[in-house]
């Protein structure tokens, strides 16, 4: 049994080692936020939504480039699903989650099309990288709107689609930033920037969906055109960069 000063010394040493290891460990952010429902006229469509495994568990791991930096792990998957569920649920009359071919068969008569979002790229910067007192996140999405016939099940259970039966295929970018603040940790700031980026992605999607030429064509065939005020959109004049310089990914 250890007692007296020996015990104190060992406990202190253990605490010091733990602190040292904590300082060296990767910084991890599991993005969390509250996402509002969009305030807009619902497009009269029932959409199936496929969240692929890579989308629902999306994360980026950035290894430290030098001894002064730390590794970063930013997990956005849960927040992505929560956010897009809220946004698409507000934009369309109904949305149905499709996670298997059987689930698709059960509802294919009721749904108009299937939308599949992908995160193609995510980059971030922190003040340590740029010497600017701003945390930034930039994301690039790809959306595919396909017919129900286009969805197939891969041997590993993952749903895939036939590009020849695609209705529309388009990309959009999103940007979020937050300035440094007193008593705010790097993790909190990156989380906040990610939430701003998600909201920006939603704003971009909600205001551009009805302007994608292939989507317009398809909506006309379904008689489901909904007016979205084009002039309320500031579009790319918002200072949203297409891709930040010096960002990490």
């Amino acid at each position: 049994m250890i007692s007296g000063p020996n015990r104190t010394i060992r406990l202190t040493a253990a605490a010091a080692v733990a602190l040292f290891l904590a300082a060296c460990g990767a910084k991890q952010v599991v993005v969390q936020g509250n996402f509002p429902k969009p305030l807009m006229e619902q497009t009269p469509l029932t959409l199936g939504v496929v969240y692929t495994e890579s989308f629902a568990n999306h994360e980026i791991y950035d290894e430290a480039a030098g001894r002064e930096e730390t590794d970063w792990l930013v997990k956005t998957g849960d927040a992505q699903v929560e956010f897009w569920d809220t946004l698409l649920g507000g934009m369309f009359t109904n949305i149905v989650h499709i996670d298997s071919h059987d689930a698709l068969h059960a509802v294919e008569q009721d749904i108009d099309a299937v939308i599949i979002p992908y995160v193609e790229d995510l980059q971030y910067t922190i003040p340590l990288h740029t010497n600017v007192k701003v945390y930034e996140i930039w994301m690039k999405y790809r959306f595919r709107l396909v017919t129900t016939d286009a969805i197939h099940e891969h041997s590993d259970g993952e749903l895939t689609y036939d590009p020849n039966q695609s209705i529309a295929d388009w990309t959009l970018s999103a940007y979020g930033k937050t300035p440094t603040a007193f008593l705010q940790s790097d993790e909190e700031a990156v989380n906040l920037a990610a939430v701003v980026a998600l909201r920006d992605a939603g704003a971009n999607f909600a205001t551009s969906f009805h302007r994608v030429p292939a989507v317009i064509e398809w909506l006309e065939t379904r008689n489901a055109i909904t007016e979205v005020p084009a002039a309320a959109l500031n579009g790319d004049s918002s200072g949203t960069p297409d891709e930040p310089e010096g960002a990490s990914s």
């Binding site: 509002p36 969009p38 305030l39 205001t207 309320a232 959109l233």
Partner: peptide, 15 residues
Amino acid sequence: INMMYPWFEPRTAPL
């Protein structure tokens, strides 16, 4: 801003 989402985000706010 939440009540009016997405019309008062930096990208969409009226100028």
